[in-house]
Design a protein around this nucleic acid. Structure first.
Length: 306
DNA sequence: AAGCAGGGGACGT
DNA sequence: ACGTCCCCTGCT
């Protein structure tokens, strides 16, 4: 077991931040995280974090997975001190509030292949349904793991590799509630397999190259590519733009001259321009700002519903 | 109770 | 720049 005191780290908020789907809270402050064929239990108690793994596994895997080597404090400080690229005072206040709420969310460094499939599944779906689909996919195609911890033996499944999905054939994904995404997943698996690239292939490209390359896979468009870049490839400048982000940017960061069309009918590229301008002080870590804004906007919405 | 709208999009004339 | 795609969920 590894015990740490970690600033800017909140497991529950990370679990609910939409960047990871295979993470569960089993009891008060006790979480299980799945990634590829690994599983980790983590506990938060009295300001300490307990990682239930060896020192060696922590250093070689989970420390990077949870992005613990990054100095989040300096990024947070920028949110309060640096002027924003645009002149809208409203946007600046919103960013500060978002940072105050969400600065303890880390951007995870997850498996690239797992991110590709997970975010292909995510399109036009809500989070609980995404979780169910991914879990079903793991049960059907993933490696079965059986561990005996003391008296209790429990079974869990790893995330399937491309070969397991490809060899099932084009009809192999039926019955998993994937809908039109079945074809995307199958085709992406076949191509990923045939190319035989490893994670480092994606991570060693520039962000722009990786993004463009990912978009050539079936079922991966700009938004999904940005999710893979940010949560998988380690490109912390990637800024996925979904409907929620569009709504916030439109409301808080657009000047009136940019508002001729409804927010959901303005193209991705125009939002990218606004982001580059508004968040220039965060160049290199724009994706972290995205996560603050996204998480804060979701809580605003869920509070409004009550 | 059946029917509708919408969901962290991608793709195609 | 538009409609269409599958499937689920929540609402009525």
């Amino acid at each position: 077991m590894v015990e740490k005191v970690i600033e800017f780290f909140n497991l529950r908020k990370i679990m609910n931040s939409g960047q990871i789907f295979r993470m569960y809270e089993d009891g008060e402050g006790i979480f299980t995280v799945y990634s590829s064929d690994r599983r980790l239990k983590v506990k938060e108690k009295d300001g300490k974090i307990f990682f239930y793994c060896s020192e060696e596994e922590f250093e070689s895997c989970w420390e990077d997975f949870f992005d613990l080597k990054r100095d989040y404090g300096s990024i947070v400080q920028r949110a309060y001190t640096e002027p924003l690229g645009n002149a809208l005072p409203k946007g600046r206040d919103f960013l500060k509030a978002a940072c105050t709420y969400a600065s303890d969310i880390r951007i995870l460094n997850q498996n690239v292949w797992e991110m590709m499939i997970s975010f292909i599944i995510s399109q036009q779906k809500q989070i609980p349904s995404i979780r169910k689909c991914i879990e079903a996919l793991c049960e059907r195609f993933g490696t079965k793991h059986t561990e005996i911890n003391g008296e209790a033996a429990e079974t869990w499944y790893g995330f399937p590799d491309a070969g397991a999905i490809a060899s099932a054939g084009p009809e192999g994904l039926k019955g998993l509630s994937l809908g039109y995404r079945e074809r995307y997943i199958y085709e992406t698996a076949v191509r990923y397999l045939s190319e035989g690239k490893t994670e480092s292939f994606y991570k060693n490209m520039t962000y722009e190259q990786a993004r463009k390359y990912l978009c050539t896979f079936s079922g991966i468009g700009e938004k999904v590519a940005d999710c893979v870049c940010l949560f998988g490839c380690g490109f912390s400048d990637a800024f996925p733009i979904d409907v929620h982000i569009k709504e916030v940017l439109y409301r808080e960061f657009f000047d009136e001259s940019g508002k001729r069309a409804p927010f959901d009918r303005i193209p991705y590229s125009e939002y990218m321009t606004v982001i580059d301008k508004s968040f220039a002080p965060f160049s290199g870590v724009k994706g972290i700002v995205q996560q603050w804004i996204f998480a804060y906007e979701l809580t605003l919405k869920s509070n409004k519903r009550k």
